[in-house]
């Protein structure tokens, strides 16, 4: 951090304590501002819950398959339609097995292994699409905010994209480019690239608007004037002075982007336009189980809960981050 807003640096120097106590003469060593942010973040209960759950679900889908090494695609027709283990408590005649604690589907595939595999894909799509959208949004926002010549053009373009009906267009894109990309990159990678790009290029607009607004406000500040007066070139101006200062809104919109990306991917899979059925994602498992949800409601509920809780925790993290990064609220 080269230059922060003045109130933030004042916060760094003076430990926020009892305002009535006489000011200490010895000034403590300046604290890292991210420690302050973390201290504030910790006070937000929902955000801490979100972080814990997101870590848990990430470990569950990444480390989980190493421990629970059942092949998610393995068919075991004799063990089909096994109910989850807790069903044995209510109904002694239910078909349960410790070998499949969450049960199996109508082809005997283990549901827990499928949820792990599906979560890997869903989270990977979410993170990659979010990063892509952020890169696009930040680039366009900074360019529009910093270079006045580009501003009108880029923002008009942003408005145009915002006026497009995005979900129908995303569906059209899925149908159009599915086969060529599949042929070029293989079935799984092709669809992955398609979905990530589709979500990325339809969700950068809000970030661009926020970043542009912040950059325009920052350009009027003294430190930018000072940097310009010593002849800082535009490139370094952006990377050293502007980008670090718009980091907080970018981080907040990152959490929002991750949440929407996960939901959009599941929605596409749910409409039957996402990954092919050999590659489970949470939305796909949910979609495949809807037909038999009368007999096996748990098959709908597991993936649905996974999506909802992940998105809920990401949204809470975003909330906590917004509070923690706002120096006006910090320390209250």
């Amino acid at each position: 951090m080269t230059d922060r807003a003045p109130q933030a640096s004042a916060d760094n120097l003076l430990p926020s304590g009892d305002p009535v106590a006489p000011p200490k003469l010895k000034v403590d060593k300046p604290r890292n501002q991210w420690l302050d942010v973390w201290d504030q973040f910790k006070t937000h209960k929902g955000a801490v819950f979100g972080l814990v759950f997101l870590t848990f679900i990430t470990l569950f889908v990444t480390v989980g398959p190493l421990i629970w090494d059942v092949d998610p695609g393995k068919l075991d027709i004799r063990n089909k339609d096994v109910r989850p283990i807790y069903m044995g408590l209510f109904d002694s005649s239910a078909k349960v097995s410790w070998g499949n604690p969450m049960g199996t589907d109508n082809l005997g595939r283990d549901i827990m292994a499928n949820i792990m595999q599906g979560g890997r894909i869903s989270l990977a799509v979410g993170w990659t699409a979010m990063v892509l959208a952020l890169l696009l949004g930040t680039t366009i926002g900074v360019l529009a905010g910093y270079f006045r010549r580009l501003d009108g053009l880029l923002m008009r373009f942003t408005d145009l994209v915002l006026a497009l009906p995005l979900l129908p267009l995303l569906l059209v894109m899925m149908l159009l480019f599915r086969d060529p990309l599949r042929a070029a990159f293989g079935p799984e990678n092709g669809i992955f690239i398609l979905i990530v790009t589709g979500i990325g290029i339809t969700s950068w607009m809000q970030t661009a608007r926020i970043v542009r607004g912040d950059v325009i406000a920052l350009k009027e500040r003294e430190f930018v004037l000072a940097a310009r007066s010593i002849g800082t070139p535009a490139r370094r101006m952006i990377t050293r002075h502007l980008l670090p200062n718009v980091l907080s809104p970018i981080m907040v919109s990152a959490t929002l982007g991750l949440a929407t990306a996960i939901i959009t991917e599941s929605a596409l899979s749910f409409l039957g336009l996402g990954f092919p059925s050999d590659f489970p994602t949470w939305g796909k498992i949910l979609f495949d189980s809807v037909d038999r949800m009368t007999a096996f409601p748990e098959r709908v509920i597991w993936p649905g809960l996974a999506i909802s809780l992940t998105v809920l925790s990401v949204n809470y993290i975003g909330d906590g981050l917004r509070d923690a990064l706002d120096p006006r609220i910090r320390g209250l």
Binding site: S266, F287, G304, I307, S308, V311, L312, N315
Partner: peptide
């Protein structure tokens, strides 16, 4: 905000 309609509806 977090529960997608295709899950709340199915639920």
């Amino acid at each position: 905000f977090s529960v997608p309609p295709f899950f709340s509806g199915v639920l």
